[in-house]
Amino acid sequence: MRKIILIAGVAFVFSCNKKDAKKHPHDHPHTMDSEATYKDPNNPLNKLTYASNMDFACNMDVSKYGVSDTLTYKGKLYGFCSTVCKNDFMKKPDEFLEKNQK
């Protein structure tokens, strides 16, 4: 009986340790680990040079996952994974930039 309880306990522990995909912090459909979100080579926004490879609103690597929206702020071009992230950044751009420059 103890062996059955021990086996059930070990199985329960391992079943709870499933690695979830890294979810995007904003409410849109892609995750940051999904193959489907890798950048599209045909998207002209992915061919531009940005001030940073990071979407400052969600910390997604846009050089890896691609850009779907852009913003020029203080003479620098920033790429974002979504309009949601761009709008979030626009609310307090200096705060995002300062936080991510450290």
Rank of each mutant, 00 (worst) to 15 (best):
H30D: 15
P41V: 07
K74L: 02
G66I: 09
N59D: 13
K47R: 08
A51K: 13
C58E: 09
D27P: 03
N59V: 11
E95W: 08
V13D: 06
K92Q: 14
C85K: 06
N42K: 12
S68R: 03
N46M: 03
D61Y: 06
E35Q: 02
T37F: 02
L71Q: 13
N100G: 07
C85F: 07
L77N: 09
Q101E: 10
Y50Q: 13
V13G: 02
S34T: 13
V62A: 05
N87H: 11
T72R: 10
A21M: 05
T49G: 00
D33A: 03
A57Q: 08
L48S: 01
T37H: 04
C81R: 08
K39Q: 13
M32Y: 03
V84D: 12
E98T: 15
L45A: 03
T31E: 10
F80V: 11
L77E: 06
Y50A: 07
F80N: 10
M60E: 10
P41I: 05
K91W: 01
K19D: 14
L48P: 01
F80Q: 11
K18W: 00
A11N: 12
Y65V: 12
A8W: 01
T31Y: 01
D61E: 08
E95G: 05
A11Y: 10
G75S: 07
A8Y: 01
Y50N: 09
F56M: 12
L77A: 08
L77C: 06
M60V: 10
A36P: 00
T31R: 02
C58P: 05
Q101F: 09
K19Y: 10
V10R: 01
M54G: 02
S52D: 15
T72V: 09
L48I: 02
T72I: 03
I4F: 00
K92A: 15
N59M: 14
L6G: 00
T37C: 00
S15D: 13
E35K: 06
K22H: 14
N100K: 02
L6A: 14
L6K: 02
M32V: 12
K74C: 02
K19H: 07
D33I: 08
S63Q: 11
F56S: 02
H30T: 09
A51G: 15
A11K: 08
F12V: 15
K76N: 12
C85N: 07
Y38I: 15
Y73Q: 01
F96I: 06
S82D: 13
S68L: 04
T37W: 01
D94E: 10
L71N: 10
Y50H: 02
K22G: 08
A57Y: 08
A11S: 15
S15F: 14
H26V: 02
E98S: 15
T70E: 03
K86V: 05
D88R: 03
F12T: 15
K74Y: 03
G79F: 04
M32G: 01
L45W: 02
I5D: 08
Y73D: 04
M32N: 07
L48C: 02
S63F: 08
C85Y: 04
Y38A: 06
K92Y: 03
T70I: 15
F89H: 12
E35Y: 00
H30W: 07
K76D: 10
K92N: 14
L6E: 04
C58L: 03
E35P: 01
F14D: 01
P29K: 15
C58Y: 04
D69V: 05
E98N: 12
N100M: 14
F89V: 13
